Amino acid sequence: ITGDVSAANKDAIRKQMDAAASKGDVETYRKLKAKLKGIR
């Protein structure tokens, strides 16, 4: 179950990262990237 949750989280975070990148929001992008590392 835990694996599914983190996989879903990663997917959601990647989508947020894409949105931040397209807006040029480097700050948010970095925060999300750090979150991704924390999940692993």
Rank of each mutant, 00 (worst) to 15 (best):
G24D: 03
K31H: 05
K23E: 06
K33P: 00
A7Y: 08
K23M: 09
A20V: 01
A7T: 08
R40V: 14
A21N: 04
D18A: 15
V5R: 11
S6G: 09
T28V: 04
G38H: 11
A34I: 06
T28C: 15
R30M: 13
A34V: 04
I39M: 13
L36Y: 03
D25A: 00
Y29I: 13
D18R: 15
D18N: 09
G3I: 11
A20N: 01
K33E: 15
S6H: 11
A21E: 04
N9F: 14
D25Y: 00
K10V: 15
K33F: 05
I39R: 06
D18W: 14
N9H: 11
K33C: 15
G3A: 10
K23W: 03
I1V: 10
G3Y: 04
D18Y: 14
K15G: 04
D11E: 12
L32S: 02
D25E: 01
A12G: 05
D11L: 06
Q16R: 05
D4E: 11
K10L: 15
G38Q: 13
T28A: 13
A8N: 11
R30D: 15
S6P: 08
T28S: 07
G24E: 02
T28F: 05
K10R: 14
T28E: 15
T2N: 11
I13M: 03
A20P: 00
A20G: 01
E27G: 01
M17S: 01
I1G: 11
I13C: 00
L36G: 01
N9W: 15
I1D: 09
M17I: 04
D25V: 00
S6T: 11
Q16N: 03
K37M: 10
N9M: 14
K10W: 14
Q16I: 05
G3Q: 08
R14E: 05
N9V: 14
L36W: 02
L36M: 04
V5N: 11
K10A: 14
G3R: 10
I1F: 11
K10F: 14
G24H: 04
A8L: 10
K37H: 12
M17K: 02
Q16H: 03
S6N: 12
S22G: 05
G24L: 02
L36D: 01
K15P: 01
A12M: 13
G38I: 06
R14V: 05
D25G: 00
D25L: 02
I13N: 03
L32D: 02
S22Q: 13
G3W: 03
V26L: 15
I13P: 01
S22P: 00
L36F: 02
A8H: 13
A7V: 08
G24P: 00
S22H: 07
K31V: 00
M17A: 02
D4Y: 03
E27V: 04
R40A: 14
